[in-house]
Amino acid sequence: MSTKEMNHLDKLEAQSVYILREAYANFKSLVMLWSIGKDSTVLLWLARKAFFSHVPFPLVHIDTNYKIPEMIQYRDRLALEYKLNMVYGQNTEALKNKQTYPDGTIDRLSCCKNLKTDALKNTLAGTWPRWRMDHNLKKYVPDEDKEPYTGVIVGARADEEGSRSKERYFSPRDKYSDWDVGDQPPELWNQFKTDFAPGTHIRIHPLLDWTELDIWEYIERESIPVVPLYFDQGKGERYRSLGCYPCTFPVKSTAKNIKEIIAELKTGKFKNIAERSGRAQDKEDGGLETLRKQGYM
């Protein structure tokens, strides 16, 4: 008797689950970044696949304080429902001193660096405060744990943007979070870099081989809840990629649900329009590659 042939989603799922389990088996201080967007939400779902409905590591969100409010509500709803070990970090200093783009004091890229890159680095390192969801109180409390996180699972996809296509599944960063694109460890036969010198940390990219369409097809197949911001609410526009509201713009679309998004992508409508085209910071000088070299995800 032969079993059903695996389709492309089955294969992607099997590979991502394998990578997640390798990460969990090899890194003690492991976390998953959850941006609340569709990709990292699929990643969260794949973790539940890998660990049979459990998520055995913290989920870390960097709250810039400028996220679209629905995103935060959705985050906390799922955190409670899935009993996630939910942690968030923030650049409270920059917000207090009004060193942000919406405050009009700095440009977009510098704002990203302050609110995202620096907040991320210091939250991971444990040098800035973290807040953790207390499931009894159903609210966030200051986190006692100050240990650095050395393995970070990220939902980057190779087809999103040029610099991401050069990534490996397991990608070491040195202690300054620098990424040496030219000299990366070899990866073959599902053997990844799992040994590393003190001071380095590893980023793990289980979604590297997924496309935007794969993500939506998988969301549909698995009935994964997503933020409604991805759907047209009647204004003839929707978000294709989510971020901070001062720098994220919707695309023209009348897709009202997952099925319609899939149909829309299949028409090839966005074929020559970058998925992150609604993200203003990518268009600044240097763009995402500069941000990524500094440690942006």
């Binding site: 190779a158 087809d159 999103e160 943007e161 040029g162 610099s163 296509s165 050069k166 020559n272 970058a274 998925e275 992150r276 085209s277 990518d282 268009k283 763009g287 590659e289």
Partner: peptide
Amino acid sequence: LKDERAQGITIDTAR
């Protein structure tokens, strides 16, 4: 193509 990709269009020489 590589230059263009750097500007955000999804063609890529690594893949």
